[in-house]
Computed example of a mutant assay.
Amino acid sequence: MKGFVLLFGVSFLSACTSVTAVNSRQDGHLTVTSRARWDIVSWNRVRTAGLHKAEDYCEKQKKQLHTVEIHSEGLHGVTTQTVEVIFDCI
Protein backbone atom coordinates (compact mmCIF):
# COMPACT_ATOMS: atom_id res chain seq x y z
CA MET A 1 0.00 0.00 0.00
CA LYS A 2 2.80 2.43 0.91
CA GLY A 3 4.46 1.72 -2.44
CA PHE A 4 1.27 2.57 -4.30
CA VAL A 5 0.88 5.85 -2.40
CA LEU A 6 4.52 6.75 -3.10
CA LEU A 7 4.13 5.94 -6.80
CA PHE A 8 0.95 8.01 -6.96
CA GLY A 9 2.69 10.94 -5.23
CA VAL A 10 5.66 10.86 -7.61
CA SER A 11 3.35 10.63 -10.63
CA PHE A 12 1.29 13.56 -9.37
CA LEU A 13 4.37 15.73 -8.81
CA SER A 14 5.73 14.96 -12.28
CA ALA A 15 2.41 16.04 -13.74
CA CYS A 16 2.86 19.38 -11.98
CA THR A 17 5.84 20.39 -14.12
CA SER A 18 6.77 20.40 -17.78
CA VAL A 19 10.33 20.26 -19.06
CA THR A 20 11.57 21.19 -22.53
CA ALA A 21 13.97 19.15 -24.59
CA VAL A 22 17.67 19.85 -24.16
CA ASN A 23 18.78 22.64 -26.48
CA SER A 24 22.18 23.90 -27.53
CA ARG A 25 23.11 27.56 -27.01
CA GLN A 26 25.37 29.68 -29.22
CA ASP A 27 27.95 29.92 -26.44
CA GLY A 28 28.41 26.13 -26.47
CA HIS A 29 26.44 25.37 -23.29
CA LEU A 30 23.27 23.30 -23.14
CA THR A 31 19.97 24.47 -21.69
CA VAL A 32 16.70 23.02 -20.46
CA THR A 33 13.66 24.92 -19.15
CA SER A 34 11.15 23.60 -16.64
CA ARG A 35 7.80 25.21 -15.82
CA ALA A 36 5.20 24.72 -13.12
CA ARG A 37 1.80 23.84 -14.51
CA TRP A 38 0.10 25.36 -11.46
CA ASP A 39 0.99 28.30 -9.25
CA ILE A 40 1.09 26.12 -6.13
CA VAL A 41 4.15 24.10 -7.23
CA SER A 42 7.31 25.03 -5.32
CA TRP A 43 10.36 26.55 -6.98
CA ASN A 44 12.43 23.67 -5.65
CA ARG A 45 10.23 21.13 -7.46
CA VAL A 46 10.47 23.05 -10.73
CA ARG A 47 14.26 23.36 -10.38
CA THR A 48 14.63 19.67 -9.54
CA ALA A 49 12.65 18.64 -12.62
CA GLY A 50 15.00 20.65 -14.87
CA LEU A 51 18.10 19.33 -13.14
CA HIS A 52 16.91 15.72 -13.48
CA LYS A 53 16.36 16.20 -17.22
CA ALA A 54 19.86 17.66 -17.59
CA GLU A 55 21.38 14.88 -15.49
CA ASP A 56 19.60 12.16 -17.51
CA TYR A 57 20.83 13.76 -20.74
CA CYS A 58 24.45 13.70 -19.54
CA GLU A 59 24.18 10.15 -18.17
CA LYS A 60 23.01 8.90 -21.58
CA GLN A 61 26.26 10.28 -22.98
CA LYS A 62 28.23 8.63 -20.13
CA LYS A 63 29.25 12.05 -18.84
CA GLN A 64 28.62 14.05 -15.67
CA LEU A 65 26.46 17.12 -15.28
CA HIS A 66 28.20 20.43 -14.64
CA THR A 67 25.72 23.22 -13.85
CA VAL A 68 26.79 26.59 -15.26
CA GLU A 69 23.82 28.78 -14.21
CA ILE A 70 20.24 28.49 -13.00
CA HIS A 71 17.78 31.30 -13.76
CA SER A 72 14.28 31.52 -12.35
CA GLU A 73 11.16 33.63 -12.88
CA GLY A 74 7.83 33.78 -11.11
CA LEU A 75 6.50 33.85 -7.58
CA HIS A 76 5.18 30.85 -5.67
CA GLY A 77 1.40 31.05 -5.43
CA VAL A 78 1.23 34.22 -7.54
CA THR A 79 2.62 33.53 -11.02
CA THR A 80 3.81 30.48 -12.91
CA GLN A 81 7.39 29.61 -12.05
CA THR A 82 9.99 28.95 -14.73
CA VAL A 83 13.54 27.69 -14.21
CA GLU A 84 16.22 27.62 -16.91
CA VAL A 85 19.18 25.31 -16.25
CA ILE A 86 22.32 26.05 -18.26
CA PHE A 87 24.79 23.19 -18.13
CA ASP A 88 27.60 21.19 -19.71
CA CYS A 89 28.23 17.46 -19.84
CA ILE A 90 31.87 16.74 -18.97
Score class of each variant (00 low, 15 high):
88 D>I: 08
69 E>G: 00
90 I>N: 02
49 A>W: 03
69 E>C: 01
20 T>W: 15
87 F>P: 01
86 I>W: 12
26 Q>C: 03
84 E>N: 03
5 V>E: 11
4 F>Q: 15
53 K>A: 10
18 S>N: 13
74 G>S: 04
78 V>A: 09
52 H>L: 15
46 V>Y: 11
57 Y>D: 05
44 N>W: 13
30 L>H: 05
88 D>S: 11
12 F>S: 14
21 A>H: 01
23 N>P: 02
48 T>A: 09
60 K>Y: 13
29 H>Q: 15
62 K>T: 00
17 T>Y: 06
39 D>L: 13
66 H>W: 10
7 L>C: 05
51 L>A: 08
27 D>M: 00
81 Q>A: 02
86 I>E: 13
12 F>I: 14
86 I>F: 08
84 E>G: 02
74 G>C: 07
41 V>F: 04
17 T>E: 04
61 Q>A: 03
36 A>W: 08
18 S>H: 04
8 F>H: 09
90 I>R: 04
5 V>W: 06
49 A>S: 08
6 L>W: 09
34 S>K: 06
47 R>W: 08
32 V>E: 10
69 E>Q: 06
88 D>N: 11
86 I>P: 03
83 V>Y: 11
18 S>I: 04
35 R>V: 01
73 E>Y: 12
79 T>E: 09
41 V>R: 00
1 M>R: 14
55 E>N: 05
53 K>I: 06
72 S>W: 11
1 M>D: 15
74 G>T: 02
90 I>Y: 13
49 A>P: 02
89 C>V: 03
49 A>Y: 02
34 S>N: 05
80 T>Q: 13
27 D>H: 01
21 A>M: 01
40 I>F: 15
3 G>T: 07
54 A>S: 11
14 S>L: 07
74 G>F: 12
52 H>A: 14
46 V>N: 02
56 D>A: 10
72 S>C: 02
35 R>F: 09
58 C>L: 00
55 E>P: 00
87 F>H: 10
70 I>W: 08
28 G>D: 09
43 W>Q: 03
46 V>T: 07
60 K>A: 09
40 I>T: 08
52 H>Y: 13
55 E>F: 10
71 H>S: 00
85 V>K: 01
31 T>N: 07
69 E>K: 02
12 F>T: 10
88 D>P: 01
90 I>P: 04
81 Q>H: 09
51 L>S: 07
67 T>L: 15
18 S>E: 11
49 A>V: 01
78 V>Y: 15
61 Q>C: 06
50 G>T: 04
67 T>I: 14
